[in-house]
Structure formats: C-alpha cells, structure tokens
Simulated scan of single mutants.
Amino acid sequence: MNIIGPLSDPRAHGGRPEDAFHLVIPSIPGFGFSGPTNEIGWNTDRVAAAWLELMGRLGYERFGVQGGDTGAIISPKMGNLAPDRVIGIHSNGLIAFPSGDPAETEALTEAEQERYDRLSGQGYEDSGYAIIQATRPQTLSYGLTDSPVGQLAWIIEKFKEWTDPSAPLPEDAVDRDLLLTNVSIYWFTGTAGSSARIYKEDAKSWGMPGKKSNVPTGVAVFPNDSSIRRLVERDHRVVHWSEFERGGHFPALEAPDLLIEDIRVFFNALR
C-alpha cells in the first residue's frame, strides 16, 4: 500500500511522470485474497507459471518482476520459465545457500560473514517456523485457524525478528494498524494452513541446485536480509546491487522510499 502510489503515479508524489509503472500485484495462491488452496501441488514453480499465465491474459507480453521473501523465490523462476518475456528481476531478500566450498568464505566482509553463518545453520533457531510449516503444516493450521491470538503471535514473531534491528518492537518499525491488517487478512480468509503448506511443497527441492537465471537481476539488501553477492551471482545474473542501513526484511512496510527508488533505478536502466 505504501509503494503503489509513488510507483504508478509518481507525479502525484513529487516524482517524474516518466518513471511511472503499470502495476500488477497478485496475491500468492494459498495466501490472503487468493486462498485458501484446496489441493496439493501449489509450490513456487506452479505459482510462477500461474503468474506468467496471468500476465499473458492481461495482455502483457514483456514485463519486469519484483518480489521479496517468497516473492524473491517466485520472481527468478518466472525469469527461468520465460526469459524472452521477463526483461528484469528486482528482489529484496534474495538469497542463495552455501554450497560447502571453502572458497565461498574467503574475504567475506563482517556483515557477509554474519549472513553466511545464518545461512549455514548457525542461526538454526530462526528457522523453527519454517521447519514446522515444511513438515506439519496441517497440524499447525488447526491452532492458527482456531485462535486469532495464535495467528497474531505466529506472524508478529517474524516481524519482531526480521524488521529493522534498531527498532525495539515490531510496531516501532511498522505502523501497528498495518501489522494488524496483515494478520487479519490471514485470519479472515482462513489461509493459515494453505500459506504454511507452500513450505512443505517447496521443501521437496530444498538443497537441490537450480538453473542459473540469465535475466538481468537487481538485488536490494536490507538489515536482517541474508543476501551475499558472490553466492547470489552463482545462481543469478546480477547487474545491480544495493545495500541499505535502514529498514528490514519488509522494506515495502518499513522503508518504502528506499525500495521505490531502488526499483526505479534498476528498471530505468532496462527501459
């Protein structure tokens, strides 16, 4: 909600009209307004294919894609499936996991070493939610669907851990009404189970090497992200890389001004 206006109508927000984008903002199947899904098989590969079909039906033959978190997984897959249609990929929160090659740890910066440690398992406590969702999503779903307090706690924990580390509480990083709206969308649509299930669907391919994307890719790294350029470049054709000291894993909510400008800079180079 914070970035739609400036990206689609920059003139009304003090920007240049020529920077305007057409925006198509789908909700992931199984999440919020696109859920709940009622069949197995909705992994991120299937979502990427569905979104390409959506763009075709809307009449967009060539377009850029942008995504963070799960969107940072889906967006590159869209590029792999349709490199002739996707002109560029911009992601925040885009990560590539260590391969075990000792050369990957050579000459890492202090910030990169911290990210590497998280990715290589030393931050295992942070992944507890993901392991539960990847192994027992349906069991979890009963508790979250039955209790609004449970749903609130499950999501707010991630905001506490992933928002700007300088913010003592989640509501210091993101407006409280936006936090409650985010949680309410899961609650009122009954998508706790189906949104968790995408982890189980994707867990089948965790650790497997993927196809390298040749689509031009831009990466925005915010505090609490685990993006390491040399690892990301192993899997993606990186042409733009930005690191920010403000914001967190949810920049559209926390630092929309930084995200908006980085999206503009990246895609203006591809227009």
Rank of each mutant, 00 (worst) to 15 (best):
G41C: 01
G218C: 04
I156G: 02
N182Q: 12
E53S: 14
T145H: 11
G64C: 12
N224W: 05
R229F: 00
A48C: 10
T217M: 04
W51T: 11
E171C: 04
F222C: 11
P251K: 08
I28Q: 10
V65M: 12
L169C: 08
E171A: 11
R85I: 08
L169E: 10
I28P: 10
P76F: 08
A173W: 15
I263T: 01
R237P: 00
E53F: 13
E61Y: 07
N214V: 01
K77V: 13
S91D: 07
H22W: 11
R176Y: 15
P83M: 01
L169G: 01
A252Y: 02
R62T: 00
D172R: 03
E106T: 13
L119S: 06
E161W: 09
R46L: 11
P102M: 04
L270A: 03
G193V: 01
L81S: 10
E157I: 10
I198T: 03
A103T: 11
G207W: 05
V232I: 03
F222G: 00
V265T: 09
K211F: 06
T44F: 05
R230S: 04
A96G: 10
D177H: 14
R176W: 15
F267A: 00
Y60T: 15
I28N: 00
Y129N: 06
F97T: 12
F250D: 02
W241I: 09
I132Y: 11
G123E: 05
K200E: 00
D19N: 08
Q113W: 14
D146I: 08
L58V: 06
K158Q: 00
W241E: 07
L259A: 00
G218A: 02
S75W: 14
V221P: 06
V47M: 08
P26W: 09
Q151F: 14
P256V: 02
I156S: 07
I260Q: 01
P26S: 11
A203I: 14
E157G: 08
I28E: 05
G79F: 07
F250A: 00
V65F: 10
Y116D: 04
P6S: 07
D19Y: 02
V183R: 06
I3E: 07
P6K: 01
I260R: 05
L94D: 08
R230P: 02
A50L: 12
R136T: 14
N268D: 08
A50Q: 15
R234A: 04
R271Q: 12
P26M: 13
